[in-house]
Each structure stands twice: as C-alpha cells, then as structure tokens.
Nucleic acid binder design. Sequence first.
DNA 1: ACAAATTTAGACAGGCTTGTCTAATTCGTC
DNA 2: GACGAATTAGACAAGCCTGTCTAAATTTGT
Lengths: 210, 210
Amino acid sequence: MSIVDAAASVFCRESFAGANIDMIAAEAGVSRQTIYNHHGDKEKLFVAIVRDLTERCNAGIFATISTFPDQPKDLEADLIAFAVRMNHNCICNRDGKFLRKLIQTEGGRYPELFAEWREEGPGRTWPAIAARFARLAHAGLLDIDDPDVAARQFMALANAELQTTFMLGGTPTEDEVVQSATNGVRTFLRAFGKRQPVSRASKQRALANA
Amino acid sequence: MSIVDAAASVFCRESFAGANIDMIAAEAGVSRQTIYNHHGDKEKLFVAIVRDLTERCNAGIFATISTFPDQPKDLEADLIAFAVRMNHNCICNRDGKFLRKLIQTEGGRYPELFAEWREEGPGRTWPAIAARFARLAHAGLLDIDDPDVAARQFMALANAELQTTFMLGGTPTEDEVVQSATNGVRTFLRAFGKRQPVSRASKQRALANA
DNA sequence: ACAAATTTAGACAGGCTTGTCTAATTCGTC
DNA sequence: GACGAATTAGACAAGCCTGTCTAAATTTGT
C-alpha cells in the first residue's frame, strides 16, 4: 500500500490527532524517515491526502454523472440504476468514505482546505447533476420547477435509508443500497414524474367509474 | 459552564485524542484535579458525555415528535413548521450538533456505546415518527404504503439542502432551514398527498377541457 | 465560628510522539 | 560490478499529556 493510501486509512480510523507516523509507516510498509522525506511533516501529509482524495472523488463523481440516463428506456429502472452507481462509485467506495470522514472529523480545523473542496466538489457536481435533470424535464419526461432543488432531493431520497449507517461510518449491504435507491426513486417519480398524458379513452373510463 | 458541557464542547472541537484535560478544565472554570475527582479518567468522562447527550437529545426529539400535526388545519404549512421545529430542537441545537459530531468522529472507537445510542435513539424515534405518518394516512390525508420509509424520506427531504453545511459542521441560517423544509415538504406532498377527492363538478370541467 | 469536605495550584513521574540525525543497507542504472 | 540515490533501523532531544500527589485555600453545613 502506498504512503498516501496508508495515511488516509490511518487518519480516518484514528483522527488527525490520534494518528501517529509510526502507524502510517507500518501500514504503508516503509520506514518513518521515508514519510518525512516525501511529505515534510504530519500536517503537510494530511493536506496532501485530502487534496488527493478530493481529486479522485471528483473524477469518480463526474465519470458517474456521465452515465446519467439522458434517453431513458425505463425511467424508473434507469434512475434506480444511476442512484446505485452513485452509491457504489462515489459514496460507499474507499475514497468516498475516507473523504467524507475526514471532512466531518477535521473540517473545522482546516477551513480553507475544505472550502477549496466545497468549491471543487459540491460546487461543481451539484450543478452537473441538476443540468441532467433539467434536460429530462425539457424532454418532457419530468415535471420539475427547480432542477437544483430536484437534484439535491433526488440524492437525499436515494440515500434516505442509509443515513444511520453512514453516521456510524458503516457500509450498507448491496441490498440496502438497492432498497433505498428503489424506494427513493419511486417517491421521486411520484413527485416529479409526468402524469401520463390522459388519453380520451382513459378519461371516459374515469368518468364511468365516478 | 459545567464540566460536562465544557468537555462536550472540547471533545467536539478537538476530537477525543486531540482534546486534553487542561483545555476542558479551563473551559469549565475548574481545576484539573476536580475533573479527575468527578469522572475518574478521560475515557470515563467521554462516555459520561455521550450518555448525557444521548439522553438529552432523545428527550428533545420525543418532545418535538409530540408536536406532530395529528389534526392539521393546513397540512403543508403544519408539516413545514414541524420540520423546522425538528431542525431547531433536535438537529441544529447545541446537543444535536455535538452528539452528531461525536458519533461521526468516535463511532468506530466505541462500538458498544454507540450501538446503545442507536437502539435508544434512531431505534425508538423513527418508529415514533412513522406512527404519526401512519395516523395521517389512516385519516385519509396522505397516501402512504410504508410509513417507515415515508418517515425517513420526510426527514431526508426536509434536510436535503443542508447536507453540505452539516458535513462541515456548520449551522445553516434560519432562512436556509425554512427554505429546505418548504421545498422538502412540497415534494413530499407531491409524492404522498391525497389527490383531492374529485367532485362531480370538477370532473365535468376536466372533461370539457379535454 | 468551627469542623469537615471540597477545591485548588503546582510539582511530578512515566509514557508517548514528533521530527532530526547518523550510519548502514538496499536499489536502480550504467 | 560499480556508483549514486534512495531507504532503512535505530538512537535521540524536546515537547506534550495523563494521572497522581501534596499542601494550602476555600467552601459548606451546623
């Protein structure tokens, strides 16, 4: 394991103050001195790790956004699959878990570093997701007023049932991810799905049933 | 400030490993020895704080749940107000912020302690909220299949726009809380609101417009 | 006002961590 | 095989923190 990977792992497990260089060296399989040679000191190492994780996570998020179903065959199934991909590639994978933990744990201690993350990360990914939903709405497949709001609500719904697990730093099972995404997307479509344009025939039926 | 309050504040700001007893003593306005007299050692102090926060947060959550609009006059407005109260009294207040931070930061180090929290906290509060939504559904005001899912989605939607702020440990402004709750509840009601029982007259109008 | 209990400041040993240094070893490359 | 660069183990000083101890000061109850 590389120094950066080992450091990410140890900083996440022990927090910045609780981590020590010897643990990282042992986990990376190098000597303590090598770490000082490469990264200067503990704080510089920490910053390097956050930058590295931010970059890799962003790459993963954009890659996954590019698989958004712009021409869905089955809107519900395609959005569920997209939500599950987001989970796997961006939230539950190693980098995602580590970056989230570091932000939560050390966010207060490095305001400018994490402000940078906020701009490069959420500041660029949310609009990208919103743009995809806006496109679906424009194509007449969804009924959305504010695509930014819809994007945030989509992700919130898709992960609604995983919150407690995330809080404790756990990883949900595949089943839990799919379940949460399915329930979330169904609710999302109940709210934003286009009512099927009502045919004359179905209107006749509705009247007859009244 | 009491020892427990000061300790909660310092442990949250510095993490368990980064906190030291002198900081806590200074912030509490007592001598270091007094802390050792009362709480034994650093770890016992930490456990005492988590127990204390868990208890107080649970009390706050149940108190707020008891203000759930069982007989709403204006369903949308009443649910928005409820969501805002949840935010104020349980999530954004001092205890809520502190407990959340400690769970996220130290959850991995005290599995049994936080398992206890999970049972007493989410394990009891989610069903309580779900029961309220089930009651609204039973009264014919909402169209809900699974009240447990609906309860989690309700809270997820109400806080959908505050996630990034929470991640970094920040506190959203009053406006942001109301905005997120409003958007969240509107979406929730688009998904689960009862379509108004269609009167004969409005059916006539619908047919005429076709 | 007095006695008991609590709190305080400060010193202290022991342990751990950071970051540096050195001398020996290994590695990559020619 | 030989040479320069990188890596290693280990020792090391300096600093910090925990948890204990003591003797003085303060508070409390009566």
